[in-house]
């Protein structure tokens, strides 16, 4: 790599609260790989794909404001959560293609001395590693390959759909046959397993009002992975992680099965293969413990 990679890190809420291990492991992996992550401490919540149901304009302005702080750092924004990625890039897309809307948003932002320009890209950490850092470079740093592990990739919706939005920042991932996580698992020395639910929804966004729906969708994903003989699952999305790990018992019950499968965050898997100690990756924070490490 010619130039040191540098990003403005938008952590989102979940990595700071209910999945602290995600932030911890991301920072550990970035340090090990020599990627500079400048945390946007000024940021607010992205609205998690719920705020805009109530107030679209407020959601736009808040997300544009977050982008302003990546722009002022003169760096592309990197996200850790599929839903953050969706909300930020949807905002960016709408503002970049609609000058009237951008002006309206900038009018509000000017009240706090900010201006959205549209000069910072936004991509999920998964694709920063894959597209910018490069798998070949990553492979050179692997010291503890995840040999003998069958790993079930769980992609999560908001990184891959709609492809018209994400295409240019996710390496043109095919939403029907995604393979970025599969490649990453292989680069880390593991064996990716194939199962029908790997690109399906975990139901997170209806957890509160429709728990039966959410639990069944998560349950199908978990049993899909178990039946494909996976030792553990890996996901780039902390919201999927909450449903698959914290709610695993209920999700299993919803589909009439007892399930017990660890679910790892993407940077934890990379971190393990890079030889970072499990405690530094926060594996102790999981409800279903990854006993192998």
């Amino acid at each position: 790599m010619a130039k040191k990679l540098r990003y403005a890190l938008y952590t989102g809420c979940t990595a700071k609260e209910s999945t602290p291990e995600l932030l911890k492991s991301t920072l550990a992996v970035a340090e090990k790989l020599g990627i500079e992550l400048d945390i946007i401490e000024e940021a607010s919540c992205c609205g998690a794909s719920h705020l805009q149901d109530f107030d679209d304009h407020l959601s736009l302005v808040l997300n544009a404001r977050n982008l302003c702080y990546a722009e002022s750092r003169e760096a592309p924004m990197v996200t850790l959560c599929n839903t953050c990625q969706l909300n930020v890039s949807m905002t960016k897309n709408r503002l970049d293609f609609d000058n009237k809307l951008k002006d309206r948003v900038n009018q509000d932002l000017s009240e706090v001395g900010l201006e959205y320009k549209g000069v910072s890209d936004v991509k999920h950490f998964l694709y920063a590693i894959l597209e910018d850092y490069g798998l070949e470079n990553l492979k050179k740093k692997i010291v503890k390959p995840l040999k003998n592990f069958n790993v079930a990739p769980f992609y999560g919706c908001h990184n891959i759909r709609p492809s018209s939005l994400h295409g240019k920042n996710n390496g043109g991932e095919n939403p029907y046959v995604p393979n970025s996580l599969d490649q990453l698992i292989e680069a880390c020395g593991g064996k990716p397993v194939d199962y029908e639910e790997k690109n399906k929804c975990c139901g997170f966004h209806a957890d509160l009002q429709a728990p039966e729906t959410a639990n069944k969708l998560s349950g199908n994903a978990l049993t899909g992975a178990v039946d494909a003989d996976a030792d553990f699952m890996v996901t780039p999305c902390p919201l999927c992680h909450l449903n698959l790990d914290v709610k695993q018992k209920k999700a299993g019950e919803a589909v009439g099965r007892e399930v017990n499968i660890p679910v790892l965050h993407l940077p934890q898997v990379i971190g393990l293969a890079l030889g970072i100690e499990p405690e530094k990756l926060g594996l102790n924070h999981h409800v279903v413990k990854a006993v192998y490490f």
Binding site: C13, E17, T19, L58, R65, L109, V112
Partner: peptide, 25 residues
């Protein structure tokens, strides 16, 4: 360790700015 104590809840830097945005937007 997945639930921060109230005194450890993350708060944004520039919270006043966010409050103002919520008000005007």
């Amino acid at each position: 360790g997945k639930i921060p104590m109230p005194w450890n809840l993350p708060k944004s830097k520039n919270l006043e700015e966010i409050k103002k945005i919520v008000k005007i937007s």
